[in-house]
Amino acid sequence: MEEKVIFSGSGGQGLMMIGKLFAHIMLEKSPHLTFFPSYGAEVRGGTSNCQVVLSDKEIASPLVDEASSLVLLNQPSVDRFLPALGKKGMAFINTSMAKAPEEGNVYGLPASDLALEAGSVRAANIVIFGAYLGRRGFLTQDEAREAIRNAFSGKGEKVIAVNDAALTRGWDYF
């Protein structure tokens, strides 16, 4: 298993949350993994991002130079990270807030609008996370739903339902 993914958006869009969640989901599935957050002044500036690397062998750097996946929620993130996408990589872009170039490996979806339909615009991160997981095939849809349910278990049934719906909308989009 080899995956180098960057999750990026503006602060508050929940990119760190899905990055950490992804790392925890993959803890038992990937022999080696790293999660690396952007920290410090960078967090207060344009983008908030985190990077997850999965590998069968030891990981030298938790920083991604050539991404196999990009999950981008706003325009500054697209501007900054799309050039780092590898030839065989996939980019998932929130077209509610950014322009997705029409290229074969770029998957645009209106994550914020889909999240609104699911019950809350705040779930845009889960919509795009669903699309990413659905295309990437690291886990089944049932496993993904279970992970989302667990991640929001302390927040009440209503929040779980919204995020479950958001995940499904993203997963089924492509």
């Binding site: 803890l27 080696h32 993994l33 790293t34 999660f35 690396f36 920290y39 938790p62």
Partner: peptide, 10 residues
């Protein structure tokens, strides 16, 4: 260092 401190790893 900052990288080893901030990085999550199993």
């Amino acid at each position: 260092d900052g990288r080893l401190g901030q990085m999550m790893e199993p």
